[in-house]
C-alpha cells in the first residue's frame, strides 16, 4: 500500500490540490458577497501600493496636461467662454423651473424627499483580468461601506460593492456579464433587465408589444433592491425585434464612460 502511495505520490498530491481548488471555488459561489479574511488581507496589503501608484500617475498626468500639452488651448478657451455664456442663460431658465416645481410640490402636498447620503470615493485600480469588469475604490468598511451598496456618478449608475476591506472595496460594474439591473424606459415605462456585455448593455425581457425608440433614455426602476429609482442607466442604441416571441432585445449605450471613471459616489442609505 505504501509502495503504491509512493509511486503515485505526485499524481495523488495533484488530485488533492485540484479537489481543494474545486471545493474553494464551489464554496465561494454560494457566498459571493462575503469578503473572506484572505481577501481582506490582500486588499489591505495592496491598498498602499494602489494609492501610491494612483498619486504618481495623477501627478504625471497633471504635469503633462497643465504644463506640456497646451496645443489649441486658446481656441478651446474661446469656445468654452461661449459655452459658458449659453450655460448661464440655461441655468437661469432652470432656476425658474426649479422654483415652479417647488411651488407645485407644495401645492400638491408632496413631502420633500431628503437628499441621499453619499460617500465620495476615488477609483484606484481596475480588474486584474480583461474578462471581468470591476474596479477598486479607496473607501471601505472604516468609512461605512458594506457589500451590496449602489455606486453612482453624476451621469448615472456605475455598479455595486461586492467585496469590502477596511480601507478599500471592489465594485462590480453594470457592464460586467454577471451584472443585472432592474430598469425601465423613461418615456413609456417599459420594464426590463439591463445585463452587462463587456462594453455595452442589453435590455432583456422588454415586452415586444411596447413601442420603444432608439435614443430613449433608460433609468433604474428601483425594484431590484440595490439602486434607487430614476437614476440614468443609458440610452437605447439598437432594437432587435424577432418575428416571434414575447420579448424584444434592446442594446443600450451606458450613460457612464467606464474607461474614464475617476471619482464615484457610494450610497450607503440604499442597502436592500
Amino acid at each position: 500500500m505504501l509502495d503504491l502511495l509512493k509511486r503515485y505520490q505526485t499524481a495523488l498530491l495533484f488530485c488533492l490540490l485540484l479537489l481543494c481548488a474545486l471545493l474553494l471555488y464551489s464554496n465561494s459561489l454560494r457566498q459571493r458577497e462575503h469578503t473572506s479574511l484572505f481577501e481582506k488581507a490582500v486588499l489591505q496589503l495592496a491598498s498602499p501600493f494602489y494609492r501610491t501608484i494612483d498619486a504618481v500617475s495623477r501627478d504625471s498626468a497633471a504635469l503633462w496636461n497643465n504644463y506640456i500639452d497646451l496645443i489649441d488651448v486658446r481656441q478651446q478657451n474661446i469656445a468654452l467662454q461661449e459655452q459658458l455664456r449659453q450655460q448661464k442663460a440655461h441655468l437661469n431658465h432652470l432656476k425658474e423651473i426649479e422654483q415652479e416645481n417647488q411651488r407645485l410640490k407644495n401645492l400638491l402636498g408632496f413631502l420633500e424627499s431628503t437628499e441621499l447620503p453619499a460617500i465620495p470615493a476615488r477609483v484606484i485600480a481596475v480588474d486584474a483580468s480583461s474578462w471581468f469588469r470591476t474596479i477598486t475604490i479607496d473607501k471601505g468598511t472604516n468609512d461605512g461601506l458594506d457589500e451590496g451598496l449602489p455606486v453612482v456618478v453624476a451621469e448615472g449608475i456605475v455598479g455595486r460593492t461586492i467585496k469590502c476591506a477596511s480601507r478599500t472595496s471592489r465594485v462590480l460594474l453594470i457592464i460586467d456579464a454577471s451584472s443585472e439591473v432592474a430598469v425601465l424606459v423613461q418615456r413609456n415605462r417599459t420594464r426590463g433587465i439591463a445585463r452587462g456585455q463587456g462594453a455595452q448593455l442589453t435590455l432583456e425581457y422588454a415586452l415586444r408589444s411596447h413601442d420603444v425608440l432608439e435614443g430613449d433614455a433608460v433609468v433604474t426602476s428601483g425594484t431590484g433592491g440595490v439602486f434607487p429609482k430614476g437614476l440614468p442607466v443609458g440610452t437605447i442604441s439598437k432594437i432587435v425585434r424577432h418575428d416571434y416571441g414575447l420579448f424584444q432585445t434592446l442594446e443600450l449605450t451606458p450613460s457612464v464612460d467606464f474607461d474614464r471613471l475617476e471619482d464615484v459616489l457610494v450610497l450607503p442609505g440604499e442597502t436592500p
Partner: peptide
Amino acid sequence: CLLDVLSGTTFGLYGL
C-alpha cells in the same frame, strides 16, 4: 487565489 482577490466576482475561480 491572489488574482481572484483583485479580479472577478467569485474567489477561487482563477485558482482553479
